[in-house]
Simulated assay, not measured.
Amino acid sequence: MRTIQIAALTLGLVLAASPAYAKRLPPKPVHPVRAKGVEFTVPHAMLMGLVVATDIKSGTVLWRRQIYTVRIDPAVEEDAQWSFITGIKTENGCLIITNESGCEYSLNLKTLQVHAIKGNVVVQWEPHDQ
């Protein structure tokens, strides 16, 4: 009986230490950007790849725009595939967005059209070399 308990404990420790079972840390907050009376924020809790524009004076949400989607492979642990926005900045009438996968997007602030500068608008998990 003691041998079974030790084996179960050892297996539990191995599984708990395994990267395949590890939970990721929450995404780092993205600093809001302000331009022309509008504040652009990234609410990670709502949806991955989402940017929200809010009128600074009234606090009214002007629009929400999903910049990219993340295609989840059900055979792989979900949180290992997440890719959150890491930064935003304004440049030439656009909002430039970067994410954890190294992708970069341009959101035209007049038309709200998204253009992938680097990467795709659908982020797909790819295994990294171990």
Rank of each mutant, 00 (worst) to 15 (best):
A17P: 00
A16W: 05
H44E: 02
D79T: 15
R65A: 05
K23R: 14
L11K: 08
E39M: 06
G49H: 01
R71F: 10
K36M: 02
K36Q: 11
W63F: 10
T41Q: 00
A20W: 12
V76M: 05
L47I: 14
W63E: 06
R65P: 10
L11P: 03
R34P: 02
R65Y: 00
V70T: 08
I56E: 04
L47V: 14
V76A: 01
A20S: 13
L50N: 01
L13Q: 07
P19W: 14
T41Y: 03
V42L: 02
G49P: 12
G49I: 04
K23H: 15
A45Y: 05
F40D: 00
V70N: 13
E78N: 15
A45M: 06
V52Q: 11
T60M: 13
M46Q: 11
E39N: 02
H31C: 12
P19L: 09
V38W: 01
P32S: 05
T54I: 08
V30N: 09
F40Y: 13
S58K: 15
R71A: 12
A8E: 06
A75M: 04
P26G: 12
P26H: 13
V30M: 03
T54G: 06
F40K: 02
A16Q: 03
E39K: 15
L13C: 08
E77V: 15
R34T: 07
K23Q: 14
P27Y: 02
V30E: 00
A20Y: 11
L9D: 08
P43F: 01
A35N: 09
S18Y: 04
V70W: 04
A8N: 11
W63D: 07
I67Y: 09
P27K: 12
S58G: 03
Y68T: 02
G59H: 05
S18F: 10
V38K: 07
E78M: 14
W63C: 04
V42P: 05
R34C: 11
Q66D: 06
V33P: 01
S18E: 11
H44S: 06
T41V: 09
L9C: 11
V30A: 05
I72L: 13
R34N: 05
V38I: 14
T69A: 05
M46H: 10
R64L: 13
A53F: 06
A22I: 12
G37P: 10
A16M: 12
L11Y: 07
T54V: 12
Y21D: 04
A7W: 05
P19V: 08
P29L: 02
M46P: 01
V70R: 03
V14M: 09
T69L: 03
K28L: 06
L50H: 06
V42K: 04
D55L: 07
T69C: 03
P27W: 03
T60Q: 09
T54P: 11
V52M: 12
G59L: 02
A53R: 01
V14L: 10
V38Q: 01
R65V: 13
G49L: 07
